[in-house]
């Protein structure tokens, strides 16, 4: 323990609460409170109602939720496949090539998402690959953005994997493909599910690239939230935002359940 005096400890905890609550807990509480209100002109929201959720769970909003879920699941699975493949291929490369591969795959993090959106828009509004106006342009951009994260986390997990396991498998006569399927991938499973959850959450909340790309019939939740707040419907927007958070958390929770099972097997 760093601080021994009881008084100093309480003082520090008070500082923590004063900083932590308003900065981090309050915004979430405000959005949650607003989603159940019609007015907010005092300290507390007023006009309690569930009408916002009525609007946020059907019609346009329901469609947006489906759109977001489909986009996020597709993009995560694609990103996980490509990222894992790249990480596995990279692990077998010489150091020089591996560095290069890592650098290329991490680049989408450094490039602003808006620019990724713009570039995908520019590239796929013209032949040979005409994706503009389809859902695939949104999914491609999301995949590009989250692949970097999938690759990073799988690479890190691979670097931590004790080579003794694959060597034991090889000494028992298992060929590289068999080692991959029966030893390395199962051992990576916890990290893979963690990466999948990360990719899913990122894609669910993606706004920057999506704003540049979304066709009218493929509007994900963040865009809908922006549209609502832009036209002044802040309370409906909050309800949709709560739906977005809840959907994300629900999927993350399910994924983490799989992860616990995988690591305790």
């Amino acid at each position: 323990m760093l601080v021994h005096s009881r008084k100093a400890r309480w003082a520090l905890w008070a500082v923590f609460l004063v900083l932590f609550l308003p900065l981090f807990a309050l915004p979430l509480l405000v959005v949650l409170g607003a989603s159940f209100a019609t007015h907010w002109s005092g300290v507390l929201p007023s006009g309690p109602t569930t009408a916002n959720y009525h609007a946020a769970t059907r019609g346009e909003a329901l469609q947006a939720l489906t759109t977001s879920l489909v986009t996020a699941v597709t993009a995560s699975l694609l990103a996980l496949t490509v990222g894992t493949w790249a990480a596995l291929a990279g692990a077998a490369l010489k150091k020089r090539y591996r560095r290069l591969l890592d650098a290329v795959f991490v680049l989408p993090v450094a490039v602003p998402s808006v620019v990724v959106g713009l570039s995908v828009l520019v590239a796929f509004s013209q032949p040979p690959l005409l994706l503009n106006g389809t859902r695939w342009i949104v999914i491609s951009a999301h995949t590009v953005l989250v692949t970097a994260f999938a690759h990073q986390s799988v690479s890190a997990a691979l670097a931590r994997l004790d080579p003794a396991y694959e060597q034991a498998a090889a000494s028992l006569g298992a060929r590289p493909a068999y080692v991959l399927l029966r030893v390395r991938l199962p051992l990576l499973l916890p990290s893979l599910t963690a990466a999948a959850g990360l990719c899913f959450a990122l894609s669910m909340g993606e706004l920057s690239a999506t704003m540049m790309l979304y066709p009218p019939d493929w509007t994900p939740l963040p865009v809908l939230i922006y549209a609502a707040t832009d036209r002044g419907a802040l309370f409906t927007g909050s309800a949709v935002a709560v739906v977005l958070m809840a959907a994300t958390l629900l999927v993350l929770f399910a994924v983490s359940r799989i992860r616990t099972r995988a690591s305790y097997r």
Partner: peptide
């Protein structure tokens, strides 16, 4: 020859039993 074609039994200090 690659390790998997040598037909050798090996036991290491950390055992390296497959945890899954």
């Amino acid at each position: 020859l690659p390790p998997y074609r040598r037909g050798i039994g090996m036991v290491v200090q950390s055992y390296a039993l497959f945890p899954h």
